[in-house]
Amino acid sequence: MSSFKPRQLVPFSPSVIAEFLGTCTLDIAEQFVRQLEPFAPGAIIHDNGCGGGAVTQAIMATNPPESIRIKATDVNGAVISGLIAQAATKSWPVDVSEMNSTALTFPDNYFSHNILNFVVLQAWRDDAKMAGEMFRTLKSGGIAVVTTFEDLPTMKVFKSVYKRYRGADAEVPEMMQADWYRDQEVRKALSKGGFAEANIKSERATTRVRVQSARRWCEIGWSLGGGPWEEKDENLWNEAIDYALEIFVGGSWWQADADGDGGWMELTASVAVASK
Rank of each mutant, 00 (worst) to 15 (best):
W229T: 02
G262R: 11
A128V: 09
W124D: 13
P65Q: 12
L26N: 07
I28P: 02
T56C: 12
G77R: 09
I80P: 06
K201S: 11
F248V: 04
A54F: 07
M265R: 07
V55G: 11
E98W: 05
S97R: 06
S91I: 04
S13C: 01
E37A: 15
W237V: 12
P107E: 02
R125T: 13
D151I: 00
S13Y: 02
A198V: 06
E37I: 05
Q212E: 13
A240F: 01
A178E: 01
V172K: 09
E197Q: 13
D257E: 12
D151E: 06
S160P: 00
T148Y: 05
Q57L: 14
F195S: 02
E19K: 10
K232N: 04
V94L: 12
H46Q: 10
A256K: 15
S81E: 14
L267G: 04
W180C: 05
R204N: 09
D95S: 13
A78F: 09
Y162T: 02
W264Y: 12
I115Y: 15
I115P: 13
D47H: 07
R210I: 01
N199W: 00
N235T: 12
Q184S: 12
M99D: 08
D183L: 00
I45R: 00
A178L: 00
E19R: 10
S15G: 03
H46A: 14
T56N: 11
D127L: 02
V172G: 08
G225A: 05
V172R: 08
T105K: 15
I44E: 08
E66Y: 05
V161D: 02
L224S: 11
R164E: 03
Q31P: 01
V211L: 06
F106M: 10
G262A: 06
R69H: 15
T137C: 09
L138M: 12
Y162N: 02
M265I: 06
P6S: 12
R125K: 15
N48T: 04
G132S: 01
R210E: 09
A256D: 09
E30I: 00
P38T: 00
R215F: 00
E66G: 11
V79A: 06
P11A: 09
M265Y: 03
A54D: 14
